[in-house]
Design a protein around this nucleic acid. Structure first.
Lengths: 344, 344
DNA sequence: TATAATTTCGTGTGCGAACACGGCAATAAA
DNA sequence: TTTATTGCCGTGTTCGCACACGAAATTATA
């Protein structure tokens, strides 16, 4: 393990001054082709990597990253968690002069999304982390970013067509498979499984479609009856009739973090014999998990998604490292017994 | 979010030079009580934290950490994983002049452990990460470390009596509960569950005792029969008779990472109707998980344990931060469907 | 009072990288 | 030949911190 080579060392080897080496490294011209070539070859040979500590120290320049995600509220607590991770990463990178500007929008409002991304663009950040909720708007937005040479990272869901730096999230299909495995526990032949999609006005459904597909795929050639229903936020009435019409329902799979709403329903109607599986460790879900109305939660590590997003921007923009185009988070299986280790 | 205060700022506020501030901060004396008090109060008021970038840059001093863990081999692949994490963390901290010296010993040889820790002591590292396998020897070792003011971190298992900086590992009891939950899936009343302890010559059993206790606790007041057996590495013969004597065994819980040996047995004897649960994502286990001879693996994040261990030493020794006395890793539940996300 | 010993404090240098600035040579324009 | 203009390159400073060195102020001793 030998020491890292420094600019000074390169200069000595090339028989020039550090200033010259620096000019080559930063493409600031004013260097003859001959010496440039020579320096570059040395750089390559000894695998020069700038000492980022020294760089961060000397650069008064503050890197600004921007985040564009939905805001969280009572009816939509999910996005509080990625935000937590983002703040955590910000804290971690404080020494490196990284500032993170946050822009929030209503998950159901394309208009707000558009307003916020206009604001964001004005800021001219060095990198962007965003949740690509509305396909068309995202397309438009990312084109602009590309035009300004601003790299961007997707979080939570993906739009493969765009030239993102990276996507951080979960493989929805695969998590559907896991859900299938969990939903079929303790079931008897001919029992019924209910799949519940609570999407509200949510427009970007790809995520949920993948989960459904994975789930269905798991049950090919398995002897269970599966019913799928689509619900709005306020669904008690609809649910009553579905349950009444299907008394053999023994297992429910909710494809989103709103599983706590179904849990609430099960509790109020004393339906503890029905297994319940859903997504994400938000507070309400954890409560029902502990009270055994929810049997399994699938976590997509939303907090970590946030911190990873920022860290990838840091690596790519500040450290100039190449990063993987995709980081699929583990599909954590959470029960009452192990939930306490996934909290913070 | 205002700028961090610097030594220079403190100096100005106190009406002294940076040298004086520095002397106070590092307790190098040669400062009058009055000015010392004044400086300390300013430090406190403005929550001064040294810029670790600048510090790492200026300190030619190389921090040396030492690691003392069992080595991995074919019959004992486990420790390859924490080592992986350790190497990863080392890579990450390269810029900070951290060197990590590794010392390995045979898991069953107190003699080797002793030899290696003598070697380690000679190195006089700034911090130590160790697996406290042999109680008495560890006691002796850690006393010496304390005598030399060398902080140390435990990994994988704990010895609460010693003055460790921190313990990183899993709550064995709690993981036993999780195993209980998983082992009782799809069971009928009066089915039998077999608990298998494969400990070899392994002397430090606390870890496994905790897992057993947690498992037993889960089954209090549950209508299943539970049998516990203790096996050496070569157990085929014994196992034959146990299975023969208990045809109602429908679920097996192996309390260690050697569950692949039981899986092998199940495969050779075509006992696919028996559920199998064990620990750790070592290669052999993953293979049988994919072939559905193992139903669930409980992962204790051994790789991450390694990297965390080093990072805690870094935080405590280099950054001078206080750290939690204990970091309990999540109890990851792994199935065929989600295993691929826990690999690296 | 003069000198030595000690306490108390300030200054200067270096870590590695970034960049402004200025210098020297070769060539072009006067 | 003199004066600009350009191409090419070296020097010096800065970032925040650590530490060596030495200077001043204070106290002790002759």
């Amino acid at each position: 393990m030998k020491k890292n080579i420094r600019i000074k060392d390169i200069a000595k080897k090339a028989g020039v001054s550090v200033g010259t080496v620096d000019r080559v490294l930063h493409n600031r011209g004013e260097v003859s082709v001959v010496t440039k070539e020579k320096i570059l070859s040395i750089v390559k040979e000894f695998d020069y990597r700038p000492n980022i500590l020294a760089r961060a120290l000397t650069l008064k320049k503050v890197y600004t990253f921007a985040v564009l995600i939905p805001y969280a509220d009572n009816n939509n607590p999910y996005w509080a968690y990625p935000l937590k991770g983002i703040l955590h990463a910000e804290q971690n990178l404080k020494d490196y002069n990284i500032k993170i500007e946050k822009f929030f929008f209503n998950q159901n409002s394309k208009k707000e999304f558009r307003i916020q991304f206009e604001n964001l663009i004005k800021l001219n950040p060095q990198g962007v982390l965003l949740a690509p909720v509305f396909s068309d708007e995202v397309q438009e937005f990312t084109s602009k970013l590309q035009g300004n040479d601003i790299p961007f990272v997707f979080i939570n869901s993906d739009k493969t067509n765009s030239k993102r730096l990276c996507f951080i999230g979960q493989d929805g299909f695969q998590s559907g498979l896991v859900a299938g495995r969990l939903a079929s526990i303790n079931l008897n032949k001919n029992d019924t499984i209910l799949v519940v999609n609570i999407t509200g006005d949510y427009k970007s459904k790809e995520h949920f479609v993948n989960r459904n597909n994975g789930f269905s795929h798991y049950f090919k050639e398995k002897p269970y009856k599966i019913i799928q229903i689509e619900l709005k936020d306020n669904f008690t009435h609809v649910f009553d009739s579905v349950i009444a019409a299907n008394p053999s329902v023994r297992s429910i799979y909710v494809t989103s973090s709103k599983v706590y709403k179904v849990a609430e329903y099960l509790k109020e109607n004393s339906l503890k014999h029905i297994q319940l599986i859903g997504y994400d460790l938000i507070e309400a879900n954890v409560k029902y998990l502990n009270h055994e109305y929810i049997d399994f939660l699938i976590s997509q590590n939303s907090v970590k998604q946030g911190s990873k997003g920022i860290n990838y921007l840091f690596k790519a923009v500040v450290k100039n490292e190449t990063i993987e185009k995709q980081d699929l988070m583990p599909i954590d299986i959470i029960t009452k017994e192990n939930v306490k280790y996934y909290g913070a």
